[in-house]
Design a protein around this nucleic acid. Sequence first.
DNA 1: CGAAGTTATTGGCAACCTGTCAACAACGGC
DNA 2: GCCGTTGTTGACAGGTTGCCAATAACTTCG
Lengths: 218, 218
Amino acid sequence: MTTSARRLSPDARRQQILEAARALYADRPYHRVSTSEVARAADVTRGLVHHYFGTKRALFLEAMRSTVVMPAGELPDDLAAKPLAERTRWTMDWILEGAATYGQGWVNVAGAVSTEAGSDLQELVDEADDNAARLVLDALALPDEPQLRARLRTVAPLVKAACREWLQRATLTRSDVLDLTTAAVLGVLRTAGITGDAPPRDDRPLSEQPQSPNEKEI
Amino acid sequence: MTTSARRLSPDARRQQILEAARALYADRPYHRVSTSEVARAADVTRGLVHHYFGTKRALFLEAMRSTVVMPAGELPDDLAAKPLAERTRWTMDWILEGAATYGQGWVNVAGAVSTEAGSDLQELVDEADDNAARLVLDALALPDEPQLRARLRTVAPLVKAACREWLQRATLTRSDVLDLTTAAVLGVLRTAGITGDAPPRDDRPLSEQPQSPNEKEI
DNA sequence: CGAAGTTATTGGCAACCTGTCAACAACGGC
DNA sequence: GCCGTTGTTGACAGGTTGCCAATAACTTCG
């Protein structure tokens, strides 16, 4: 309840409004929170909200950005020598730890509905997933090749879905999710020729699998 | 331009309006399509739209439901005898085939942004993912246990993300996605103790993996 | 210390949107 | 052809967004 009848530094005001918006969007979706409400919650005029953020959508996006990004803690770096499987498991455990504490927002924001391809929200979530992928690559001491990162990006939504099954539906336990996500990451990495403890020579586990039914390229 | 000045059967009108809504929502998000526009596109009055669907949100959800559901084609059932890995690969290939043709909508609808936990859209997407999971279980001739289905539900968003990487970003090829999703499904199944009857080159299961760092139950 | 300049903040205006309802008119049955 | 049924319309009320000129708070300078 900061007394806010008077003048404030632009940064402070922005922050104050953003905080109010975050709180409101935390339990109601976009189209059910009006700028008037945000303004009232921040104890300012509606005009001021538009003065700082221009449009309601911009405010929403900026409010979301802070909850979507993975909370970057520091992971133990003493596991550089351990085998890939173990490193992966540690990393996933570390991510789950973050999801359980900070990640209410990160888990809930599962993606974007936006048949429109270049949606603003889609971009935001994609950015967050890309960050998560890069983060995992770094934790596993793997090279940051774009193709490899693309593969890991696809795992991010799986992790989020698994966390929802665990935290919201309680259909899976924490160790279930740990097993699940670890297996997924390792499986995906293996398709990129990364098997960890095996020598860098790609032993192509999928190569000996049956031919695809309708194998059209691209 | 169907002449629609005159009376129509309720079903026909509903369908007509729904189609118009689908077309509009196909390239613009919810909050940027007004009911007036839908009405104009359907060549009816705005009042009629509300008469049939009550609220704009209801119209939106009903329009989405048709694009979110996986197009259920028939899969070849002559692979009952083949090993699990091959069955999985066939199934994923079949899903990718559907995604490439019908699934523009299914792929784009990646999830729901809705910090609000019980969002209507979230429910819709969850329902679709659950259907997909059940579908895969059926294709793989696996028992439909709730726990197993929960695990497979988490793979659905990964498949969608992979399809987006393939179809929209072109960062992965079709066979990349096929490898990726197959590996993910197999990995996830393995965590449920399903290794495929025969021991198929099951190199390193999770059993001999290192203990979890902070293994807190639930 | 007072005046002038900055600029954060306000209040209200205009356009739009959603949801509702009574009135109208097209169609089918008798 | 008349009449009841019902698909369809037009308009009204409340609420929302975006914008802008006016105002007032704070700072700086003479």
